[in-house]
Design a protein around this nucleic acid. Structure first.
Lengths: 367, 367
DNA sequence: TTGTAAGCGTTATCAA
DNA sequence: TTGATAACGCTTACAA
């Protein structure tokens, strides 16, 4: 008998564990004068309860401050309503809006975001065990997964959507922006405007995004028959931009025609060093471009030529895709590709409309 | 009998709910040839299990890919090992590193971060119900809580630490940086250097941090017997800085001696508009200062005079404080106050060492 | 529509 | 140290 149990535990003020007694659906049932299952049903969207019963239950619940226990529900339904988001600190630092976006979209689906941050891209293994423990209904991962890790998601049947990471293997779902294509576009436009000697300040080695950007650039230059670029490595921060530029000039023996930076932060660092420390006229003597279209890249002091990913749409689609998978619905697109949009700032000489001044400046002037 | 149940559910492949059968501690026990309790104990840090038993269990667990179910544990122990972090999108946007920091510190304590993001500071009510449902062990809140909401945390006995929000009421725990004091310091130093007519570009109305910064400034000016400042409102973004400056000049009929901005982003916007659009020499004709010491404020193009909060320490202490509360240990400091550190950039004329060039420039020159 | 009862997968108590 | 067993608080057949 269950009722007896309740009375018992009241007497002991919590039989097994020391904590204070919590209000449960039994208490509500008792007060409302209905069965416990009636209470449970009253809190479920499409259950069959008469309005009268539901009203009684809700009144009693309110009186007792009753809130259903998610852990118990999770145990019973085998769904936790939790979505794991795994992201490296680096990514969060440079794309904070994406996390907000994901959080909002996940909440909109009635789920909650369990956050796992990584010191490095490849640290996923350290948190994976916790991901399993919490029985998350799905995961969105913006970090590097090994083949074994990918396989484990499949084996444990945890729906997975990769966010801007290269999905090796066929059955892996992902939203991703074509970084190589973006880099190719940038190179094409710069070449069109007469740039011949390119240089790149690369991102950190563990960033697949950076790798794609680099390979896209190198490939396109090769296709165009232009000289091989000078590539130096950076780690996505401001200092890398300035240091990278110095290294490039050192290695090349002169100022390159164009410097493509792995992200906007480095582009800004490169710009500042060029203008304030080396006295290089940008874009007159050298063009500079970045990636990501950070807020800062649009500031008056910079107006960086850069490539914007449709991050808002990507986040929304990632969550939508995950939900489809969680509901076991078939026919979901396995992966969605996006294209970056070139923002013609005033740090690179480009041909074609709108030409000078840059797109942003023109918009400002028009406003 | 439990074993019978297992056999049954195998036969039906999940009795009640349709999902695939999961590996449970019973399966491990069966394979290892021990009782289920032995399995449970083997997975608990300080339980009394013989090495031999533990080894058998671990071998079997590995063979079956067994992972304990957090929901079941949570139900039984009444601890979820979940910490809710409630933060507004705005805050996350401008302080992404804090979230990373909190996440890391929480993980270090063996807990996990359940993220709740808010469109506005005052939207806490919308997510609170979910916070209760998930039975979080504690919460760190960087948003505005009403008295009722504060009371509800107390009533439900959910340990709470406010992050940089004014704790009304006595028994509310918090880590907070003294924003008013920081503003007072800034005003003092600027006044010392001869600035008389101050202006402020205020933050959004729902930001208590902005309110404190403003009141600190106004109070200190009053104490010093300086003219009342011109205060215009902004909303922490770049455009607000430029618009704010124009409004100030409009209202004052001239350029003020010093503009204090509610955050660095607005300070940067203000600077760019002053220099590039209005041709004002900064700091020669006008000083500009901000708050938060963003990365961007240290960039060569800006080198903003600003105030840095010890965010890393604050995040670590917030989590440490929360853990103390969760463990029911008494003697925890009820609230911890921090002081900001003035970063003497080159956008404001200040007296005293190190004088010109700004601190950052001097450091760079020395390097 | 409603109540009864059998799970969900753990931990904790108690006796052996 | 070990095993049997009773919670933990919910959902969901199934029967009424």
């Amino acid at each position: 008998m269950r009722k007896k149990t309740i009375i018992d535990s009241r007497a002991f003020s919590g039989t097994v564990n020391g904590g204070a007694r919590r209000v449960t659906s039994y208490d509500v049932a008792l007060l409302a004068g209905v069965s416990q299952s009636a209470v449970s049903r009253s809190f479920q969207p499409g259950a069959s309860v008469s309005p009268a019963t539901q009203a009684k239950v809700m009144r009693a619940a309110a009186a007792l401050d009753y809130i259903p226990n998610a852990a118990a529900r999770s145990l019973s339904t085998r769904r936790s309503n939790l979505v794991a988001v795994i992201v490296s600190n680096l990514a969060n630092r440079y794309y904070p809006q994406e996390l907000s976006e994901l959080s909002e979209q996940i909440a909109r689906q009635g789920k909650r975001l369990l956050l796992f941050t990584l010191e490095r891209e490849t640290d996923v293994g350290k948190v994976l065990c916790d991901v399993w423990q919490y029985q998350v209904d799905g995961a969105i991962v913006a970090a590097w997964l090994s083949d074994e890790q990918l396989a484990e998601f499949a084996r444990r049947e945890v729906p997975l959507v990769l966010y801007n990471r290269c999905p090796r293997g066929h059955d892996v779902h992902a939203v991703l922006c074509d970084q190589a294509e973006a880099a190719r576009l940038l190179v094409s436009r710069l070449a069109e405007a007469g740039h011949r000697q390119f240089a790149m300040i690369d991102g950190p080695g563990d960033s697949t995004t950076a790798q794609e950007r680099k390979s896209g650039m190198v490939e396109r230059l090769l296709e165009l028959g232009l000289p091989a670029p000078v590539v130096v490595s950076g780690n996505y921060d401001y200092a890398s931009g300035g240091q990278g530029l110095r290294k490039i000039i050192d290695r090349l023996g002169r100022v390159p025609d164009a410097v493509i930076c792995g992200n906007d932060i480095m582009a800004i660092g490169c710009l500042d060093t060029a203008r304030h420390l080396l006295g290089i006229q940008v874009p007159l003597n050298m063009s500079v471009a970045g990636f990501d279209a950070l807020d800062a890249s649009g500031w008056l002091s910079y107006d960086v030529t850069t490539l914007r990913q449709p991050t808002q749409k990507m986040a929304a689609d990632a969550v939508a895709m995950l939900v489809t998978l969680m509901e076991g619905r078939p026919g979901a697109a396995e992966r969605r590709r996006y294209v970056s949009c070139l923002i013609e700032g005033s740090t690179a000489r480009l041909t074609g409309a709108p030409g000078y001044p840059g797109q942003r400046q023109a918009m400002r002037a028009a406003a």
